[in-house]
Computed example of a mutant assay.
Amino acid sequence: MESAINKVVLSGFAGADAEIKTFGNQKLARVNLAINETYRNSGGEEVKRVQWFNLTFWNAKADIAEAQVKKGTGLRVEGRLQANSYDSKDGKKRYGVDVVVSDVVIRENEKQQAF
């Protein structure tokens, strides 16, 4: 049997500055990525919508995200999907999916910088 593949590539814009947390000697950066989509509905009208994705950067990539990812920064990321769950304040079980980033390109105007 062929091994499983868990890979995603996204291109969009940071919805806010990177949020940073530290756990001992580990650093985590979280960023919400907005991807604008346009399509035509069954009536032929153009519809625009925004899809939001949660990005997670660890350690050295978190350091760079902290320094360079601000609201509106253009990003192209590659990573893997990671499902998670947590208990909300109202006691309900909540589920989500994050993109754990392995590679990223920061798009600044026409210039791109990879890390």
Rank of each mutant, 00 (worst) to 15 (best):
A14Q: 06
A14R: 02
A14C: 02
A14K: 03
G15W: 08
G15R: 07
A16Q: 07
A16E: 02
A16L: 08
A16M: 11
A16K: 13
D17Y: 10
A18R: 00
A18V: 01
A18Q: 01
A18I: 00
E19F: 06
I20N: 13
I20L: 11
K21Q: 14
K21W: 13
K21A: 04
K21Y: 15
K21S: 06
T22Q: 12
T22R: 04
T22I: 10
F23I: 05
F23G: 07
F23A: 08
G24V: 03
G24K: 00
G24F: 02
N25S: 14
N25Q: 14
Q26M: 12
Q26P: 04
L28K: 13
L28V: 03
A29D: 01
A29I: 02
R30G: 03
N32H: 05
N32Y: 09
N32T: 09
L33G: 15
L33K: 06
L33D: 14
A34S: 13
A34R: 00
N36M: 01
N36W: 00
N36V: 01
E37F: 05
E37A: 00
Y39V: 12
R40N: 13
R40G: 02
R40T: 09
R40Y: 14
N41E: 11
N41L: 06
S42R: 15
S42A: 15
S42Y: 14
G43Q: 15
G44T: 10
G44I: 03
G44H: 15
E45L: 14
E46D: 06
E46M: 05
E46N: 14
V47P: 07
V47W: 12
K48E: 12
K48H: 09
R49M: 13
V50H: 01
Q51A: 12
W52I: 12
W52Q: 07
W52C: 09
W52A: 09
W52M: 07
F53S: 12
F53P: 05
F53E: 08
N54Y: 00
N54G: 09
L55A: 04
T56Q: 11
T56W: 02
F57H: 03
F57C: 03
F57Q: 02
N59M: 11
N59Q: 07
N59P: 03
N59Y: 10
N59D: 12
A60K: 15
A60I: 08
A60F: 06
A60G: 03
A60W: 10
K61F: 10
K61Y: 06
A62T: 10
A62D: 01
A62W: 05
A62I: 06
I64R: 00
I64A: 02
I64D: 04
I64P: 02
A65R: 01
A65S: 04
A65H: 00
E66N: 11
E66S: 11
A67K: 03
A67F: 09
A67I: 11
A67Y: 07
Q68H: 05
Q68C: 11
Q68W: 11
V69P: 13
V69N: 07
V69I: 15
V69D: 08
K70S: 09
K70H: 15
K70I: 01
K70E: 14
